[in-house]
Structures are given as structure tokens and as C-alpha cells.
Design a protein around this nucleic acid. Structure first.
Lengths: 115, 115
DNA sequence: CATCGATATTGATGGAGGTCGATATGAATA
DNA sequence: TATTCATATCGACCTCCATCAATATCGATG
């Protein structure tokens, strides 16, 4: 992942509403009103998120679009509903990059062995 | 970590300037102007960050304060300089929490075994 | 095609925060 | 104590974005 993608993904996660959406998706804590999502899919439709969060429908659509744009969720139209599903690979990628970019490396040059 | 702490840490990371600061700290890429930081410490003083990023000194102080407030860096006054050091534990904590909170769990109730 | 439910888009608003110049604070030294 | 260097704080500006009401779009169904 390039730095900009990491920043975009972090920004997407740093919002309370969007973080909550991903949390309830991950927990499968939504009894979806859409009859085309199986429980094991961990998915939800827009109305589900509206019900759980209390946010307005436009706001929820906006957040889901943001999450999709950065790859944290996947979008799929099923009949009259637009269904959203978590994307675990995006979390993995982000975590890996954070480790590589931000984890302090032992500085091997303490003794001045390298130029 | 509670949710708010996670959000605070994510917000701190989601800014380009602050992410860059942590990156260069982690890489030990700063030849610090402060003579009281050893290379293996991965630390830097405010003026170092100003030189590398081109940001104003007040802005850099502000960002470092933000990073310290959320635990991502540690602050230490050494003589006339204020030195900052990365805190790897904070990265670990964040990553662990992200995994627990956002990684989709297999929904065990597909067969309806649980009420 | 007309209608209806579900979602997306538009436009407007308010608040949060990144940035800088000016200034204050603080530590070391003469 | 006076001075100097390094950093912190203050005040202001400006941009970005979360949010909502209103409206448009879209899929299904009659």
C-alpha cells in the first residue's frame, strides 16, 4: 500500500460512525431487514445501519460510500437492496503496512559500521 | 483499549504530517541536531522535524503534542531540547484492538444452533 | 408504464482541526 | 541576572467534512 492509501483508510476508520458500522458488521450484530443476506455473510443493508446507529439515511449512505471507496467494505446490489460486506483483506493490508512503516527498526549503525 | 482511545489514535495517525513524523522516527532517518539523542533511540527534537517536513515550528510542536497525548510518542526534556521517541507498544495495542474489533468473526449460528 | 420501497445525490450548514505569525515560557550559560 | 537558543502557547484564518432535509434515481412488481 502506498502512503496515501494508508492515510485514506485510517481517515475512514477514525470516524466514530464509520468505526461503529464496521464493528457491528464484524460482530454480525445486525439482524438485517434485507432477506437476501445470510447470517454468515456479516453483511447489512443501508436501512440496517440507520436502525442501529440512529443516523439519517443519507448520512449512512455517505459513510458506506466512503468505506467502499477505500476498500474497507464491498458493495453488492441484491434486488431492491444495496448490501455491504466487510473486507478483511483491507484490514490485513493496513495492519501490515502500519507495522512496516511505523515500527521502529533497530538502528544497526550505533557503532558507526555503516557509512 | 476502549473505542474512544482507538479513534483518537487513528485520528492522530490519519494526518499526513503526523504519519510522516512517525515514519521518519521509525526509520531512524533523522540526523538529529540535538546532541543528546543516540542513534539507536530513534528519537528527534522539534527542530529536526521542522527541517525534514518544512512545517513551521508551532505546527510541529502542535503535532508532537497530539501524538504524545494519544500515546504514540514519548516526551523527554534533555537540556534545552525536548526530545520525542516512538512508542512501539501503542502501535501494538492499536493493531491488536483493530483485529479484535473489526475482523469479521465466523458467524457460528448459521445453523441456528444458538438462540 | 405507474407505483412503491430502498438507496443515492444535491445543497446547505455547523463544527473540528491543520496551519502560521506573533509572543510567551523555559533551560543553559556567561 | 541577562542573554540566547529551543520549544510551547495564543489567536486567527481557512479548509475539510459530518450531518441533515429535500429530491432524484433505481429495482421490483403490478
Amino acid at each position: 500500500m502506498n502512503t496515501q492509501s494508508v492515510l485514506d483508510r485510517l481517515s475512514a476508520l477514525a470516524d466514530k460512525s464509520r468505526f461503529t458500522i464496521l464493528q457491528i458488521m464484524a460482530k454480525g450484530a445486525i439482524g438485517t431487514c434485507c432477506d437476501r443476506i445470510e447470517a454468515y455473510e456479516n453483511g447489512c443493508c443501508v436501512a440496517d445501519v440507520v436502525a442501529v446507529t440512529g443516523l439519517s439515511q443519507p448520512t449512512v449512505s455517505h459513510h458506506l460510500k466512503t468505506l467502499e471507496k477505500v476498500g474497507l467494505v464491498r458493495k453488492e446490489v441484491r434486488g431492491p437492496w444495496t448490501c455491504y460486506f466487510p473486507n478483511p483483506e483491507a484490514i490485513d493490508e493496513l495492519i501490515s503496512t502500519l507495522r512496516v512503516e511505523l515500527y521502529p527498526s533497530e538502528n544497526c549503525n550505533e557503532g558507526g559500521c555503516c557509512p
